[in-house]
Amino acid sequence: MLNGAVLSLTLLATLSLSDLTLGRMLWAERNGAAVLLNPRRFGQEHPQVISDLGSACPGQVCGVLAGSAITPLLAAQGECTQQDMADRIIDESKQFDAATQANMLALAKVYRQAEKNTPPDFTTNPPTPRNSVFCQKAPKHPELNCLVQKQDPANDPNLFFDPAKNQASVKKGTQANTQPFCQNNQANVQKGGNNKATTPTNTTNTETQTQSSSSPSVCVIYPYLFSI
């Protein structure tokens, strides 16, 4: 018993005098460099909609969907991955009853508008918060038309982070994806519609004027019957 107590005291004394490192902090690395982790605003690492989605339907379907729904919100993901995920939620809802479908559709809409993680521009001091770029294709399901992810109001409204451009900032207006697809599409339709509406009118007027000026005079004979 005494030997055990002496051994314990000796061990504690040795540890207290030692300069050896007994543990170290692990930091994520990529290509030999530390990866900067940027926390999302107001709990965006795991928004409430993901938890709600996990329990939205019976079986394993919604649990799998909830697990898959986290990745599209990460900064490095493509501009349309979040919309594609929302379309997938609606696809999977078709196998359930009407009430479950309605709930999953509502969650898909909420998820589509969830804020996406974007790193700030570290080339400025202090770093400048940036917006995420917008998907430039129509969703599969019309219920998602013109829905886009929210942006942090603290972001610089003229700066965007495009994962396809590495870390370089993109200025608003220099790329189509700095504006929602719905707005770009409506602008194109209106522009095309005005041209189509104007051209036929001018053509018709020209043809009418040409016909009226070049048409020869026509003599019309009206027959009359005389009875004697």
Rank of each mutant, 00 (worst) to 15 (best):
L20Q: 06
L20M: 10
L20N: 07
T21A: 03
T21I: 02
T21D: 02
L22W: 01
G23W: 03
G23P: 02
R24G: 01
R24L: 02
R24A: 03
R24K: 10
L26R: 08
W27K: 15
A28Q: 13
A28F: 08
N31E: 15
N31G: 09
N31F: 13
G32F: 05
G32E: 05
A33T: 09
A33C: 04
L37N: 08
N38Y: 11
N38F: 10
P39Y: 10
P39F: 07
R40G: 15
R41L: 12
R41H: 10
G43F: 08
Q44K: 00
Q44H: 03
E45P: 03
E45K: 00
H46A: 05
Q48Y: 00
Q48W: 00
I50H: 01
I50A: 03
D52Q: 14
D52M: 13
L53Q: 08
G54M: 01
C57Q: 11
P58V: 12
G59S: 11
Q60R: 10
G63N: 12
G63E: 07
G63Q: 15
V64E: 15
V64D: 14
L65C: 11
A66W: 11
I70C: 10
T71G: 11
L73Q: 11
A75S: 15
Q77F: 09
Q77Y: 10
E79K: 15
T81D: 15
T81S: 15
Q82G: 12
Q82L: 15
Q83W: 06
M85K: 12
M85S: 09
M85L: 12
A86V: 07
D87N: 15
I89F: 13
I89V: 13
I90C: 02
I90L: 09
I90R: 04
D91S: 08
E92T: 00
E92W: 01
S93N: 05
S93F: 03
S93L: 01
K94T: 14
F96T: 05
D97V: 06
A98D: 11
A99E: 14
A99P: 01
T100P: 05
T100G: 05
T100S: 09
A102E: 15
A102Y: 01
N103P: 00
N103Y: 01
N103C: 01
M104V: 02
L105I: 13
L105R: 04
A106I: 00
L107R: 12
V110C: 04
Y111G: 07
Y111N: 08
Y111S: 09
R112C: 13
R112D: 13
A114W: 00
E115N: 06
K116Y: 00
N117G: 08
N117L: 14
T118E: 13
P119W: 10
P120A: 12
D121E: 13
D121M: 09
D121G: 07
D121Q: 10
F122A: 04
T123P: 01
